[in-house]
Design a protein around this nucleic acid. Structure first.
Lengths: 134, 134
DNA sequence: ATAAACCTGTGAGCGACTCACAGGTCAAGG
DNA sequence: CCTTGACCTGTGAGTCGCTCACAGGTTTAT
């Protein structure tokens, strides 16, 4: 199977597949004319990569898990450590996204009652500068 | 006021200040020896930038708002449009972060009952490959 | 024979910093 | 006067995970 076909089968951009090849997550053989040949094993490996990505692993994490597996080690202990790490990070990011969204929603709400400002030199945009709530 | 002092006053990394200078959001004059001189106006402008950043505007957005203001236009209409745009994006990102976190939490929960796998050739990591729920 | 539709590697762009580096400037202490 | 150290400068590159563009090679259909 060639790159485009594999990409189609998994509904990902062909450039994503090529990115994984470039960064060593997939290592397909090449045929005589230089085209990549993705075997069933590569296919399974791509499925693994995509599932791991869905679970919040970084590509570096995935590289490490794949290295474990190919060097005969169980990747599971690393997977457990890494997912805890990524989950902590994801929760932090989620929190900051939540406060961002509510900050933005408050601003939009407050701005509805406010007129546009004319540029008068003592502020840049009173909407933005005005509503501090800390 | 020089870069480091300004950065301290606003509790931001001095490199952030320098980044804003480099990308044209701040345009301090320079003294004879080549050092940047941040006036009270620059200071107010940095405060504006930081507040806008808190409200989810991109640096490009902020650049546009500053351009409006310096070209004598009221930035408020743009601010209103842009914040709606960024809010929509932020909500989408928040949603995807929420589903990511719950996917990760489910995985961690399920994995507690599962043993580490030995690498047996027909899977890479059964923890990761196992639990699809779509 | 030629055009369309693939494929290849490589380089660059996204966003908002952050760090590293080489070199200039300045104040304080000996 | 000189050195040390702390600051400053511009520039280049790294982060992350793609995504696109480009120039050129291959294959397939007409």
């Amino acid at each position: 199977m060639k790159a485009g076909e594999l990409a189609n089968r998994f509904s990902v951009n062909v450039n994503t597949v090529r990115h994984y090849v470039r960064s060593g997550l997939l290592s397909p053989d090449k045929d005589a004319s230089g085209y990549h040949y993705f075997s069933a094993e590569e296919e399974r490996q791509l499925a693994f990569i995509l599932r791991a990505r869905e679970l919040g692993f970084t590509l570096d994490d995935i590289r490490q898990l794949l290295n474990d597996a190919t060097s005969g080690e169980s990747p599971c202990p690393h997977a457990r450590e890494l997912i805890e790490l990524r989950l902590t990070e994801a929760r932090q990011k989620l929190n900051s996204m939540q406060s961002l969204v509510s900050r933005m929603e408050s601003a939009v709400r407050e701005w509805q009652a406010l007129p546009d400002c004319a540029p008068c030199g003592d502020h840049i945009c009173h909407l933005i500068e005005g509503g501090h709530h800390e």
